[in-house]
Design a protein around this nucleic acid. Structure first.
Length: 298
DNA sequence: GATTCGTGGGC
DNA sequence: TGCCCAAGAAT
């Protein structure tokens, strides 16, 4: 049970807002989803950016919106085409969920991305972060936007700790709420995310370039190292995830169904291979075709 | 809460 | 060179 950090004096809070927002004005990256993007474009970017770096998202984002410029356009195509276009972004279930979300938007919201947090949260693949982000960035809504960047920035500046806890606590959400400015909350959200992405980075923070270094409690405390529990490092070699990735890659790169013997070539362990393939089918990423073939979902 | 779920780049 | 990390969600 860690005691909540003392709140910022009002004067410091005002400085914090001013400096971060001013810094954002001059330092923010020129990203396509910030250039007068439609709500749908913002939504697509948020799905793709879940656990995925900007540099890898950019090309897929561009081609995706060119092909499917609206929820209706995506909904009219097959989920398998969404999975194929997702390419090697990773976590391909996101492609499936984005497609399902597009279908739901057409069915329940007249084909327009809804601005309300509740409506967004009800969409597949949209959790607390993504709902707040879409409502903030596409509709200038006022919400607490807690992504990995913002959590790290607040942990350092306000709590004096190197890194936030493994999962979001109610105290942390309370802190973020207390820090939310009365106006320009959507810009505050984008600015704090950008500060975390460019300056207050996980590994080698650029504190000399930080606009609020003098307000930072982690810095004032002498940069103590994080002592809490870490997310367990995920293994890769030999895992089901690696196997799933290989199987799906074969199907993505094939125009039509693939015979099972062809799939068998990419993974030596038959037991694990079957389990992974069953899992892909259960997830709706793959569907059986005929007796002995598999394809992306039609 | 703890796990599962891809992929690739940086240090 | 391995390890850590990247705009999380669902179960």
């Amino acid at each position: 049970m860690t005691r909540a950090a003392a709140p910022f004096p009002v004067a410091d809070l005002v400085r914090l807002h001013e400096r971060v927002l001013e810094w954002f004005d001059v330092a923010q990256r020129d990203l396509p989803w910030r250039r007068d993007a439609s709500p749908w474009a913002v939504m697509v970017s948020e799905f793709m950016l879940q656990q995925t770096p900007v540099s890898r998202v950019l090309p897929v984002y561009e081609s995706w919106l060119q092909r499917w410029p609206s929820p209706a356009a995506l909904a009219a195509d097959s989920p398998g085409e969404a999975v194929r276009a997702w390419g090697r972004l990773g976590y391909p279930r996101r492609a499936l969920r984005l497609h399902a979300a597009a279908v739901a938007i057409v069915a329940h919201h007249g084909g327009e991305v809804p601005p309300a947090l509740d409506d967004l949260l009800a969409l597949p693949g949209v959790g607390s972060y993504t709902a707040a982000a879409i409502s903030s960035f596409a509709f200038a809504g006022r919400h607490v936007v807690l992504d990995t960047n913002v959590r790290r920035v607040f942990a350092r500046i306000a709590e004096g700790e190197q890194l936030p806890a493994t999962s979001v606590t109610s105290a942390e959400r309370g802190l973020a709420t207390a820090l939310l400015p009365a106006t320009e909350a959507h810009r505050w959200a984008a600015a704090t995310m950008e500060l975390g992405a460019l300056i207050c980075t996980a590994r080698s923070p650029r504190c000399t370039e930080c606009p609020v270094a003098d307000l930072c409690r982690w810095r004032a405390a002498g940069y103590p190292e994080y002592d809490g529990a870490r997310r367990p490092t995920q293994s890769w070699d030999g895992t089901d995830r690696q196997c799933r990735g290989r199987l799906l890659a074969v199907l993505r790169d094939s125009a039509g169904p693939v015979a099972k013997p062809q799939l068998d070539l990419v993974w030596p362990d038959a037991v694990q291979r079957e389990r992974a393939l069953d899992g892909l089918v259960a997830d709706g990423l793959v569907e059986p075709v005929g007796d002995d073939s598999f394809a992306l979902p039609g």
